[in-house]
Every structure is written in structure tokens, then in C-alpha cells.
Design a protein around this nucleic acid. Sequence first.
DNA 1: ATCGCTGTTTACTGCGTTGTACACCCCCTA
DNA 2: TAGGGGGTGTACAACGCAGTAAACAGCGAT
Lengths: 331, 331
Amino acid sequence: MVDVARRAGVSPKTVSNVVNGYAHVSEGTRERVVAAMAELNYRANLSARNLKSGRTGVVALAVPWLSNPYFADLAGHVIRAAEAESVTVLIDETRSEPERERRLLDGTGSHLLDGVIISPQALTADDLAQLRGREPMVLLGERIFDGGVDHVAADNEAAAQELTEHLIATGRRRVATIGFSGTRLTGTPQLRRAGVQHAVEQAGLAWDEQLHLAVEGFQRRDGAEAMRALLALPERPDAVVCFNDVVALGALKALAEARVDVPGEIAVAGFDNIEGSDYAVPSLTTVDWDNAQLAEIAIELLLDRIHSRRPLRAREIVVRHRVVSRESTGG
Amino acid sequence: MVDVARRAGVSPKTVSNVVNGYAHVSEGTRERVVAAMAELNYRANLSARNLKSGRTGVVALAVPWLSNPYFADLAGHVIRAAEAESVTVLIDETRSEPERERRLLDGTGSHLLDGVIISPQALTADDLAQLRGREPMVLLGERIFDGGVDHVAADNEAAAQELTEHLIATGRRRVATIGFSGTRLTGTPQLRRAGVQHAVEQAGLAWDEQLHLAVEGFQRRDGAEAMRALLALPERPDAVVCFNDVVALGALKALAEARVDVPGEIAVAGFDNIEGSDYAVPSLTTVDWDNAQLAEIAIELLLDRIHSRRPLRAREIVVRHRVVSRESTGG
DNA sequence: ATCGCTGTTTACTGCGTTGTACACCCCCTA
DNA sequence: TAGGGGGTGTACAACGCAGTAAACAGCGAT
């Protein structure tokens, strides 16, 4: 910057003013500075700027698994939404490890981050209470916690209920689920299960605990194993709601191997509308969240919080969803 | 840091020495400083450190599409490999836009990046020649360019040849390909095509140009469209090599819709061994690259270059691959 | 000619850290 | 006892930028 200033015959501060678009710089000066910058191929040093401003222009997005196409897609949307605001996104894979989630949020990221968008998996309300107010953060995906933290939520319960109603409306009477997690009382799986249960009970159908299987991970393997277990039951289900598409694809595989006709004998549905779910064999009925909207809102909330001096009230916004009916349920 | 120093009764520089593990600090002093840091919850300011050191500890990984599970997986490996070296990775989705690739490499990233790992799609040798020597960079995935740049390559031609030999060995006689790109003379698709052609010709089989279709993108949709075109031929192929798994999954879908038996009537193979290719219906024969190895080498080469003062000779390393035989080829 | 005003530009300073140079202390040896 | 020598700690400056306050130029009004 000093070199540019010398070349343009001005002070370094004037160069800074030009770079930052300060209003009161004469046209001639501006041109000379711009020319000098171009000639010297000058680019501002972000580290120095950050040191002065106390901000880095970097936010983290923490997702459990990048290998899950849903999160890869979400990450893409967040990156694009952030780009529109000249913010850089750091992707962090938490691998569902509570320790990694906590470390990210407690600021051990050591001044590299202005804020964090996190899709929590293992975080408890206790963890969150401790972290509240520390670093700007936005939670994604579900309404687990009481408040105090900005939240972009999806209405998992309603979506699960609609999905199940769709199954029942197309003649299914014995609806199973795969993906309940017995180890926690809150969280997405519980909400989705509750939605399914509401739909089943409102339709006057029996609720059979046997049909609702927990999984360890949320991988294809888990879906396939659970499906095999369901097929081994004396009285098979005629529909299976998997709590994400990855698990559903595993279930489809197990059905194909067992030569069970989908949707003829058993209908299958998932959540997330991941890339490729429309090209599965058969294509998968699922719930689509508006990830573009989700990403935009998350970035907006986070930047609000970063730029505001005073503490803001926690906000919660629910994004759109819709059931996408495809071959796997006869759609 | 000043506060910590005061509390520990030492100078700020001593705190710095403790933080950086400088050898000659007495045990007592170190303990007092560590205690003071803990009490004050001190964390070093990275911006300031970067300003002094001239490095940021951040490298970018540029991939064409994060939505392609192959790149999502690769990104995960690179993040982990970098983490082991205390380096942070910024994911950049170039969307195959030449402009984005160029901008990333010409340093317009403005001092945020120590270096770049890029899986080039649209970059030409000309672009590269201009950028050479500017910023530390490592190219991934194929051996397109002459040199002057570090490279972690895969032997696409050999892999394609092995894959095709596998098809021929299991009785296929009419091998088609999907994914050739007519618009460029170099690059992965060309290498893979060449490998297929070698195998076909070495087996004494005819090479029929009609069987080798270009695609626009490399999405499932493209694979499905191309497959339908192949099915419409008067003389159908009995094997199809798709130039990545995503395209292959699209082809499988088109075959399922046309009720063509795989592998009975037509065998299908892909490249990349993406997550889920083993759970496709039928599971997909493909080429597996050792992404963990690839990521480790890429990070190692890049860090070497970042830390070395003098220019290094460009290096090229080829990672392992292996053909994974699954149901789609009768494996 | 002087004043005050607006618009433009500058000098100075500090953000938090670390490299350099040096001071100090203690112990060992000649 | 004097003179090294290694271990331990400190003062100072600088990395590149932007905030602050103040200086300066040009203009019309007095």
C-alpha cells in the first residue's frame, strides 16, 4: 500500500480510502490510485485488515457428514449465499462428535471465525446454554432447544405427518419407520417419528412398536440392515418411512436383493430429497426442504448478529417443505 | 496477551514463547503462564499472527461440484489431511466455470490463502502458464499439463483399460462409452476413452464410433439420456463404460425404466467409486481411487511448497487405483 | 483581504503478535 | 578470581491497514 501511495503521489491513507470506497476522494486522485494499484498488482492484505477491524469475514458451517449429499448440497447453498455478502465459508465436518461441535462453538477456533452456522447432532441443551451469547451462531435443522439462539428450523413433525398421510391416502395400512434414535429424547428422529405416529393414529390405524427400528448411523448400510429386519417379521409392513434418503436408499437395496416389489408390496419414503433420489431405482418419494432459502436465511441471521453491537433477541424461522411423490410410493 | 503477561508477571514476549513452545522457558514460568492463560481464557489472535508471519494457515480446495459425491468425499479427506498439519481448508466450488478457476489461482483471493489445491475442469494450459510460480498450488486428478506445477494424478488411461479388460474378460464384445467430451482435446474423458479403446483394439474387437457418446454435464440426467440413445441403436452395446459413477447411475436408471436386465443384457461400469455406488440397484462396478492417499499427498506437496523459500522442481505423483467389480457387470 | 465553509488529503497511532538483539543470571573452568 | 558459556527473560520494532483528528485547498460571502 505504501508503494502504491508513492507511485500515485498520495499518502497511504488515501489509498486506503480509495480501496474502501470512501466518498470524498477526487476523481483524479482516485484514478491515479486505481492505476497505481493495477500497475503494482496490489491487493489488500486481509490479515492486516482483520487485525484492525476485529473481524475476519469468515464464518464456519458445521455439518455432521459432508458425504451425505444433503449436507453437501446445503453447503453449496450456504457458500453461494455467503458469497453474495462477500463472506467466506469454512466447512467443518463434525462427524457427529460432540467434542468437535463444542470446540467449534466455544471459540477455540481462535479468532478465525466471525460466526458459526451449525447443524447440531450431538449437542445438548446444556452445552448450548453454556455457549449462549459467546460467539454469533445460528442453528440449523430442527427446533430442539428452548431459545436464546437463532434458529432456522424445518417443521419435521408436520413434514413427517404429511408424508405418512400420503402413504395412507394411497392405501397403506401398516407403516414402519427406520431411523428412530433411542438414545436421545429430542432431535429430528423423534420429531419425525411423532409426525408419523400422529398420522397413523389419526387415520385410526394401529401403532405397532415392532415396526419402528432405531439405527446406529444414518448410512445406507443401516437402512439395509433395518429393512432386512422388517422383512423378517411375521407380518411385514406395507410402507416404510426412512428418516433420511440415504437410509431409504439402503432400504431399497435390501428390498431389491430380497426381490420385494417396490412400490407393489412395500412403499418406501425418505427425507431430504438428496441429489440422486430422483434417479434411484425406483425413484424415491421424499420430503424436500428449501435449502436455498434455508441457507439465505441462515446467512442473513448470522450477519445480523455479527454486525449488531447490542445483543439481539433470538429469532426462529421455519423454512418451507414439500412432499415429493415418486415411484417408490407409486407416485 | 498483555493481560496474561501481567497476570503471570512476565513480559508479553514470554507468553508468546510459551504459546509457541519455545525451548528455553523454565518450568515454573511456563506453568504460571499456562495458568494465567487458562484463567483469562486467552486465545491467540490469528489475524495478528498471520500479519506477522505472512501466512494464514488456510489453503483452498477447488472442486467443480460439491454435489458430486466423489468431490464431497475428496473434500472430506483433504480437510482431515490438512487438520493433521494444523491447516484449515476452504472449499471452493468452481462449477466448472473457467473464470472462477482462474480467479482463485491468480491470487485475487487476496492474501487469505497460503495455497490452492485444484481439480481443474476448464483451465487451459495457457491459463496455467500465466499462473505458474505465483501462488503455491497443486493440481489434482489428471495429467493434462506439461509441468511446472505440482500434480497428484491418477492413471486414467490405465484404469479405463483395466476396467474394459474386465468387461471383455467376462464376455462382453460391444463396449460403449458415455462421457467423452468433444469440446476439448485433453482431460480426463479423453484419457478414459483412450484406455477403453486400447483394450477394445487389443482384444481384436471392432471400434464403433457410434457407441461413444459425449455428454454436456456429468449428471445423472446426462447419463440417462445417453443411455436411452444407446438403447435406440439398431445394434445395442452389451457393455457401457460411463466416465463417472454419477453418469453411470443415470444410465442404470434409464436401463431400469426400459426394463433392460443389468448385467444380463448390458453391463455397466463407472469411475470414482462414489459413496452409494455399492448400494445402487444393481451395485455398480467402478474404479476406486485412493482418495485418502491422494489428499495426503496433495497436502504434503502443497505445504512443502508453501514452506520452502526457494522454488522447487515440479513433482508429479500418481495415486493407486483399483477396479471394483460388482453386480452391474456380473461381478 | 478575511472569514467560514465544504471537500479533500494527510500524520499519527494502535490493532496483537513475533523476530531481533540484548541483558541478566548462574554455573563451570582456567 | 576472572572469564567464558549456556539458559532464561526482556525491550523494541515492525507486520499492513484503518480510525481519528487535524491540516489544507478552493470557493463565495462579507
